[in-house]
Design a protein around this nucleic acid. Structure first.
Length: 600
RNA sequence: GCCGGGAUAGCUCAACGGUAGAGCAAUCGCUUCGUAAGCGAUAGGUUGUGGGUUCGAAUCCCAUUCCCGGCUCCA
């Protein structure tokens, strides 16, 4: 047996070290599980984004209650200070080893390794050995700060035709501080969960009687959505988009022409029969915008033609994947399709990126990650369209980002079959990333629908089509906003911007007058006249996450000024009505979150 | 769809084979009070739904709907 050297150049805390630590932790977990639950078969146990998992198959059905026991055993193993060591094996050696132990999944993996002609290595620590390509820490004693998090089902090799395995997830970090930070982040994420806040703030609901994945926007959520839509429409018009409306269903012939009936069939709701026609709910808006384009002969002078719509689409999603507002069956896309000439693609893509950055800024996202998904030239046949168009479009996508100095990741082979794209992942307030905005080329539909325009030289040409969505889905974007702000929305989005709280019944008249003035100034204002103590009124307003609380008591009325409390608890006294109005108005127009306002 | 876990008052939860309860919210009174919960009363439930076991089911069994954690997929 030849010892295998591990590449351990990377320093502690690096991505490589984290992966090694977590993967090592997975090995230790596999050992603990096999000791505690004899007869459990091991499969694979990789490091992932923030931790690791191991998939098992066995007679014992794992539950959350098992985790502390497994953790305890893991600690004992880790403290044993067992070095990790690897050794190359012959195929025969390895096969015998796993056969003796009845580890069928390992034998299957071994066959794969053999077929690919890769080295077969076994890695061990203490009494435990795994078929593994390596990547471990030096010793189990480095594994100290970890926690098992959850149990879940997972298909062997991710294929639903295969056996369902049991997966245990965990997280591991080099220091206690990092582990605690991560666990705190998970707690924080739980507290901000848009599904919880959606109920607490009365924003939206899902109704069992209506069906899963269908969203009911309540008055407060609906108002916020309206503000988001109005703002986006106004921005779109400024940028030369033209708003359109299209139907929610269309004859199946449309979907046959577009190709959706073949490549998107599994995600479409089934047919509705009406008289002699068959119709289907739209899963995408694209073909509708294409039909508007095609409604008459187009000239190069009209290009770029930017058609935008807040288009509601319906997609059949399998019941198990639905998730609050983030994954639903009916949702509204801020969809636009830009029809342009080849020489216009760079400026159009640039305009889309510009618009996207404006959206992020407006909603307080300062961090994002960009991905350019290109084709895999080795698989030429799976893609539609001319190679020259692909190359040109991909170059345009990259050039725009380069010119702006925006860092991006190139992901070859990730393009849709109909065109390359830029995806934007937003990073929210607690560091999680969300895929939202997308700018995609579509080489399919212009061809399928035989789109054309008359060029300057009188010839007929096929336009290029760029599909772009910035919010992506209003439902999803809204859900992310709720979590990003933890329900403390900036003033321009807050359903109730200010609430006037009276101390005693004496202040009713001045409070009503103040409310009227704020409303006249276009602010969304509420009034709390209940005969409750001020502390109770403050508490209720805080729980509603109202950004401005205006307290009106006898002293304020006598002085002719107001006492203002901000959502973050800061208080200001002696504020005049004019100051309050100016402050609120300025904050709304500049889309700021409540910030410094002199000294309390 | 699949694996696992759930569903009790508007919300958060208790009761786990023997008459279904609490806090908050709601309603009605009293209290007029200075920055996160004043006091009292009232009302609110075919325990998600349908079936079964049992003298007796929120509790045990089966089916079903929806929700949650994942797999897969994605806006």
């Amino acid at each position: 047996m030849n010892a295998v050297a591990e590449g351990k150049g990377a320093e502690a805390g690096s991505r490589q070290y984290l992966d090694r630590l977590r993967h090592s932790c997975a090995h230790v977990m596999a050992q603990a599980v096999q000791e505690l639950y004899p007869g459990t078969k091991i499969t694979i146990g990789p490091a992932i984004e923030n931790g690791f998992y191991y998939d098992f198959d066995g007679p014992h059905q794992f539950t959350l209650e098992d985790l502390p026991k497994i953790e305890k055993r893991m600690r004992q193993i880790a403290e044993g200070n067992h070095p990790f060591s690897g050794a190359e094996q012959s195929y025969e050696q390895s096969r015998r080893y796993w056969q003796e132990r009845g580890e069928g999944y390992k034998l299957e993996l071994l066959e794969g390794i053999k077929q690919r002609g890769e080295r077969i290595t076994h890695y061990s620590h203490g009494a435990f050995t795994d078929l593994c390509r390596g990547g471990h820490v030096d010793s189990t004693k480095e594994i100290r700060h970890f926690k098992l998090l959850s149990v879940a089902g997972a298909y062997w090799r991710g294929d639903e035709k295969n056996a369902m395995l049991q997966r245990i997830y965990g997280t591991a970090w080099p220091t206690k501080g990092q582990l605690d930070d991560y666990l705190r982040m998970l707690e924080e994420a739980k507290a901000r969960d848009h599904r919880k806040l959606g109920v607490a703030l009365d924003l939206f609901s899902v109704q069992e009687l209506a069906g899963p994945g269908l969203i009911f926007w309540h008055p407060k959520g609906g108002l916020m959505r309206m503000i988001m839509e109005d703002w986006l429409r106004a921005e779109a018009l400024k940028r030369g988009y033209q708003m359109v409306y299209t139907p929610h269903i269309a004859n199946v012939e449309l979907w046959n022409t577009s190709g959706h009936r073949s490549f998107y069939k599994d995600n479409m709701f089934t047919e509705i029969e009406v008289e002699k026609g068959h119709y289907q709910l739209k899963p995408m808006n694209c073909p509708f915008h294409v039909l508007i384009y095609k409604s008459r002969l187009r000239s190069y002078r009209e290009l770029p033609l930017r058609l935008a719509e807040l288009g509601t689409v319906y997609r059949y999603e399998r019941s198990g994947v639905l998730h609050g507002l983030l994954r639903v069956r009916g949702f509204t896309q801020d969809d636009a399709h830009i029809f342009c000439a080849r020489e216009q693609i760079e400026s159009e893509v640039s305009g889309c990126i510009d618009f996207a950055l404006e959206v992020f800024k407006a909603f307080g996202f300062s961090r994002y990650a960009l991905e350019v998904s290109t084709w895999d030239p080795a698989q030429r046949d799976v893609y539609i369209g001319e190679a020259s168009d692909w190359e040109r479009a991909q170059a345009a996508l990259e050039n725009v980002l380069k010119e702006r100095g925006l860092p991006y990741e190139l992901v070859p082979g990730e393009a849709a079959f109909y065109g390359p794209k830029i995806d934007v992942k937003l990073i929210d307030a607690i560091g999680r990333s969300w895929q939202l905005s997308t700018v995609q080329f579509d080489f399919n539909l212009p061809r399928k629908f035989e789109l054309e325009y008359i060029a300057a030289d009188g010839s007929r040409k096929t336009p290029l089509m760029v599909h772009r969505a910035l919010y992506g889905s209003i439902e999803r974007f809204f859900g992310i906003l709720v979590e990003h702000y933890a329900g403390h929305f900036p003033l321009w989005l807050s359903p109730v911007q200010a609430k006037v709280l009276t101390l005693t019944a004496e202040q009713e008249a001045p409070a009503r007058a103040l409310e009227a003035k704020l409303k006249a100034a276009g602010l969304r204002c509420a009034l709390d006249l209940r005969p409750e103590k001020i502390g109770a009124k403050i508490r209720d307003a805080q729980l509603e996450k109202i950004p401005y609380m205006v307290v009106l008591g006898p002293k304020d009325v006598a002085a002719g000024t107001l006492s203002v409390r901000l959502g973050d608890g800061r208080q200001f006294s002696g504020v005049t009505e004019a100051e309050l109005l100016e402050r609120l108005g300025g904050e709304v127009s500049r889309k700021l979150v409540a910030s410094a306002w002199g000294k309390p």
